[in-house]
Design a protein around this nucleic acid. Structure first.
Lengths: 270, 270
DNA sequence: TATAAAGGTGAATCCGCAC
DNA sequence: AGTGCGGATTCACCTTTAT
């Protein structure tokens, strides 16, 4: 298995080619199946540039369920027994994803809430501001208890208090947000690096292999590199792969990990 | 239909006796199916008094799914077209509940995160502190858009900023927590009144009928009374009913609702 | 140059009535 | 069910333009 590469192809097909029990961590940011129908306008009459990508369209709940069952089943097969998986979603899809994972035998360790510090408001005043996304962190099964969790590191990272399942993190905007040649956002759902930093720092050791089956513009790969983990990405769109490769190649600064290293000396690769 | 009463009996059987399109709001706090097998101990070897009630035990996912499908189906039948439903749960059950609701045709309006200000830590350091529960707020279907949502009131309640889907509220402890004759907590999962206050204030008008099919020790009834709404409770355990009746009868103070009244004059009952 | 004002934007299931 | 139109509706943060 060649590491630190991006495989171009269909997620399920490419997952099938990977070996049993070979991956330490999976981070998956699948399509949410948002079911948006009409355009949304702000109070000043500008149009919201929402998600209307083809990759987010499914014909029915049943189609979406079949898709998720297929890739989640492969993920469980290729995960090591000490490995865990993270799946991120919104209320549009996370309940279906959670049920499918439970039915496949996954064991939920935490439902982590990404509490957005700067969510888009509900302009019409018809609901509460939707301020969260949910991450499911799961082991392969209830019986497997030797999964990696760097409790001390996360406690230190959190100001010497045990980190909770609520993570207050801003949206990916500004410098960090990748732009296309037209100056517009290159990917409609790029995740903030801080989110991936917490994921990778908490649930991998140095040298572990992190797989992202919906690689997009490569936030998982970028953070893995900055934290000196190996990564493997699967992505269908050549345009995203191009951006991701360039992004990762240009990384020259690494995250400070002094605390983590201090607490995990025995895990370090010589 | 006699209002402001508690019906003793099986939740599903009693729901079946209620009329179509007759309820304005449902708040449901069903069994979570926690699947706790071994006792949990604190670092000092004291045992954690968790949920170990018979009513929280189900033989399998399928049994739990059947149970939830049955009561959620009845709830959808008895809700008015302008009504909505809230269901609270944890990661143990909320994904199954959410999927069942979607499959029954409910339409998710928000997934509200109850962010506990004082959650129980993870003593073993094996996971992140589980600091949330999730509330699903749903209408009967996608097409029904005339549900009650007191946007302005909630905005005022929240310091003149739109209220988000994250509610920071403490656990129900201290004076508010009902105790049995032995001084121990009377109910293992009593919810804080602040939670119900936000639910009822945001999604009912004065005089509306609020149904709680898992009434327990009556937090829903108590808050409904304090906010001058009518309530209807269903509860199987006579012991809980006794406590709830006494609790609600003793209420003499009402929540201040000046802001709400100011913003909703047209809705007031003469 | 510095500060202020104006404009843009983010995984969004976002109106209600008359015809 | 679809269309048209009057009217009510937003928060944090970053970028660009104006003073």
């Amino acid at each position: 298995m060649r590491l630190n590469t991006i495989i171009q192809g269909d997620c399920i097909e490419e997952l099938k080619k990977l070996s049993d029990n070979s991956i330490d961590l999976i981070f998956a940011d699948p399509p949410y199946n948002m079911q948006l129908e009409n355009a949304l306008y702000r109070p000043n009459n500008t149009k919201v540039d929402g998600v209307d990508d083809e990759w987010d369209k499914f014909g029915s709940f049943s189609e979406y369920d079949d898709f998720c069952t297929a890739w989640l089943k492969e993920c469980r097969r290729i995960l090591k027994d000490t490995g865990t998986i993270w799946v991120i979603g919104s209320y549009h899809n996370i309940f279906r994803v959670g049920t499918i994972m439970l039915n496949l035998g996954y064991w939920i360790l935490n439902d982590v809430t990404w509490y957005k510090t700067n969510p888009m408001p509900n302009f019409m005043g018809t609901r509460f501001t939707n301020a969260t996304e949910t991450l499911l962190w799961c082991s392969k099964s209830k019986e497997l208890k030797k999964y990696t969790f760097n409790h001390k590191s996360m406690k230190k990272y959190n100001g010497d208090k045990q980190m909770t399942s609520v993570w207050q993190i801003g949206l990916c905007i500004g410098e960090e947000r990748l732009k296309g040649k037209d100056g517009k956002k290159a990917h409609s759902t790029q995740k903030p690096e801080e989110l991936l930093k917490r994921v990778i720092l908490s649930t991998t050791k140095q040298g572990d292999i992190v797989l992202d089956p919906f690689f997009g513009t490569g936030t998982t790969g970028a953070v893995a590199k900055k934290l000196k983990r190996s990564f493997l990405g699967i992505e269908r769109e050549p345009e995203y792969i191009k951006l991701a490769k360039n992004r990762i190649a240009n990384i020259k600064e690494y995250f400070e990990e002094a605390d983590w290293i201090e607490e995990n000396k025995s895990l370090l690769i010589p």
